[in-house]
């Protein structure tokens, strides 16, 4: 298995208390596979992604327990210097939501795309230049050799996201964490970035974790998804199984809330309320307070129930 995460807990130690941002996550990604990590804001999907790279909020973030193994190598205990040298940006790369926050406005594109290749000692001099041109070609920047000296603002939004992707794949990582890579883009550009990610996966056999709140985007790229709610994975399985028969009440509510093109004028099923605070969250099911199927049992932590075919959900209703 390319990536195996077991019982990962990452908490934020804040002045007002301990925020259980990532609380007992299990997931795995095979070579060349795309796993969708879906959920709403604050569900912990981005912090899960950042935890894999140990990019934790300074001063407050701490991995409490659990294991992250990349090609069998344990990352949670790896010294920071080794992690920075061999893993971060090298074997695991990340694409962020807003390309303008990943690109430095005062450095040329050639400099920035070449940065990771230089830092990881992959290429220098003329070899570096041709490696940069090559990777920009792979993400379909037209005539890259003429544009190495251009700055981020001279590119369109879609092109900037391609350049960020080029920075990420330059060192041929094993795993790519893409955090809302299409969210800041218009739909017609979004389509192009989805096609690009599919091409990267196909050409390089890289494993991808796609973090998104958009189930449509997840459906078009992933074979498997994991649904997060309040710091935990509540349901995971093949995309088709989850869309056809969502089993966790939260997944059901999430799917019902998506505006559809052909369900017009039937009311969206709005679930009341909001997710709980993750400082002292309920000790039982974290969705219980909003759940239409709540029972007495839900005050205790729900078991993860195997539904077959790699599909599972954490809910008391399914255990009975």
């Amino acid at each position: 298995m390319l990536l195996q995460v077991e019982n990962l807990r990452m908490h934020l130690h804040l002045r007002r208390g301990v925020l259980q941002a990532v609380d007992g996550i299990n997931l795995h990604v095979a070579e060349g596979e795309t796993l969708g990590l879906v959920g709403e804001s604050g569900s912990g999907k981005t912090l899960t992604g950042l935890s894999l790279l140990r990019l934790l909020p300074k001063g407050s973030g701490r991995i409490e327990s659990g294991s992250i193994r990349l090609d069998g190598q344990e990352l949670t205990t790896l010294p920071e210097a080794e992690l920075a040298r061999d893993i971060r940006g090298r074997r695991i790369a990340m694409i962020m939501q807003d390309p303008m926050t990943s690109l430095n406005p005062v450095f040329s594109i050639g400099d920035q795309v070449g940065g990771p290749l230089r830092n990881h000692d992959i290429a220098r001099g003329t070899a570096l230049r041709s490696a940069v041109v090559d990777v920009l070609k792979r993400v379909r920047i037209p005539s890259p050799e003429d544009r190495l000296g251009d700055y981020p603002h001279q590119f369109s939004g879609g092109q900037r996201q391609r350049i960020v992707a080029a920075m990420a794949i330059g060192c041929t990582p094993r795993l790519l964490v893409a955090d809302e890579p299409t969210t800041a883009l218009d739909v017609t550009i979004q389509v192009q970035i989805i096609a690009l990610l599919r091409q990267i996966q196909h050409d390089q056999g890289v494993g991808i974790i796609l973090i998104t709140h958009d189930l449509g985007v997840a459906a078009s790229l992933c074979r498997r998804i994991a649904v997060m709610y309040a710091g935990q994975i509540v349901e995971t399985g093949p995309v088709r199984a989850i869309y056809r028969s969502p089993s966790h009440p939260y997944t059901q509510a999430l799917l019902a809330a998506i505006p559809r093109l052909h369900s017009k004028r039937t009311r969206l099923a709005a679930i009341p309320g909001q997710p709980p605070s993750l400082i002292d969250p309920p000790s039982g099911c974290r969705f219980a307070a909003r759940c239409p199927m709540r029972m007495d049992q839900c005050a205790a932590p729900p078991p993860t129930v195997d539904l077959g075919d790699g599909h599972s959900a954490a809910c008391w209703k399914l255990a009975n």
Binding site: G158, T188, V191, D214, A219, S220
Partner: peptide
């Protein structure tokens, strides 16, 4: 524009994109 919408029901279909800008 309508055809570039990702759909929940279909996986792996290549969405047609509009060239240019």
């Amino acid at each position: 524009l309508l055809r570039s919408l990702p759909r929940l029901s279909e996986r792996g279909t290549v969405l047609p994109s509009i060239a240019g800008r």
